[in-house]
Simulated scan of single mutants.
Amino acid sequence: MIENRPGLNLLAHLTLMLGVVVVALPVWVAFVASTHTATDFMSGTIPMWPGPHLLENYGRMLDSGVSTSGMPPVGTMMLNSLIMALLIACGKIAISITSAFAIVYFRFPLRRMAFWCIFITLMLPVEVRIVPTFQVVADLGMLNSYAGLSVPLIASATATFLFRQVFLTIPDELTEAARIDGAGPMKFFRDILLPLSRTNIAALFVILFIYGWNQYLWPLLITTSSDYYTIVAGIKRMADAVDGLPQWHLVMATAMLAMLPPVAVVIGMQRLFVKGLVETEK
């Protein structure tokens, strides 16, 4: 029986409200900063209410960018980040789900060792192997390209492990029934496993899309042409003004625009995302 304790309910709600304020306050400050001019931040006090330059600042970033920093318009950088995030998310899911399918449903020598070799790569993220990875990408001529931005980040041991656990929960009777009906491996994979894994794929897509969108170090390292700047690396370049003070109002406007696609993906796929994380039975 769940007891109704008004005091505890009030405390829980106050704690949640405090958490929302702590999380939302930096976002609010960034939004307010994006609606003012650069001189409003030279007085030593930070405005807490929006200013009159919202349309001017956002329109400038979307239209022409910051020419003094060599930055392209925000739309170009957001398109590059979108392509990179989609390639990483879709590539990780495609490779992980097929490798998990092979490990679970095919019997071949050293099958378990193959899985653990994949899993051990968790100890080698791109930051650890960034020098040899950069050398390989440079030797293959993939600098300043979408392939160079996404291919080194596609392999995912975590997604392979999650899909393996999902496939292990599927009853063996379903596999036997498909075999009796004459379904081959790929038909079983396409008609049975993929529909059963739909919510897990959606949950992983949200996580991996945000992972790809927020990539900072790798795009900053391999892109020297402004045609391939991503939005996160672009914010860093805007903040590192060489010939003058950073235009923080424009940096904050870019940061607010950079938040929109991940937020849209999370909101649009919220139901499948939550279901994919909490679902335990097929």
Rank of each mutant, 00 (worst) to 15 (best):
L18W: 04
P246C: 10
A114C: 09
P109K: 09
T254D: 01
L168R: 15
W213I: 03
A258F: 07
P152Q: 06
L149T: 02
T224Y: 09
P52D: 12
Y228H: 13
L153F: 07
R190C: 09
M259H: 04
I210N: 10
I93S: 00
A178E: 04
V166N: 05
G91Y: 04
G141V: 13
A258Q: 05
D181P: 03
H13P: 00
S226H: 08
L54G: 06
G19R: 11
Q270L: 09
F189A: 11
L10D: 06
S67M: 10
P132W: 13
I231H: 00
A202S: 15
V242W: 06
L277D: 06
W28R: 12
S34N: 10
Q215K: 09
V104A: 12
T254C: 12
L221N: 03
L86S: 02
H53I: 04
S225T: 14
P195R: 08
S43V: 13
V29Y: 08
T254G: 06
E3Y: 10
I170K: 07
Y228V: 07
P50C: 07
T199Y: 05
P171G: 06
A203R: 00
M17Y: 09
V151G: 04
A94N: 06
S150R: 00
W116P: 00
A33L: 10
P72L: 04
I83N: 02
A155Y: 09
L272G: 03
A239W: 03
T98M: 15
T98Y: 07
T15V: 15
L79D: 04
N214V: 04
T68H: 01
V151Y: 05
L193R: 00
A33H: 02
M186A: 14
G141C: 12
V206R: 00
V74A: 14
K275T: 14
R5W: 10
K236C: 01
Q247W: 00
G182Q: 08
C117F: 11
L143H: 08
L124P: 08
A203C: 05
T160S: 05
P26Y: 13
V104G: 01
V166M: 11
T15W: 14
M84Y: 00
D227L: 11
T158M: 15
I83Y: 05
A255L: 06
S197V: 05
M17L: 15
T35D: 02
F134N: 05
S69F: 01
G75I: 15
D172Y: 03
P185W: 12
R111E: 10
S156K: 06
R179N: 08
A233K: 00
A255G: 09
I118T: 11
P50E: 08
V232M: 13
I170R: 09
L14C: 14
A177L: 15
G234Y: 01
M256I: 15
A264R: 01
G268H: 08
D40N: 12
V232C: 01
D240H: 07
V232P: 00
Y229S: 08
F41C: 06
L162W: 01
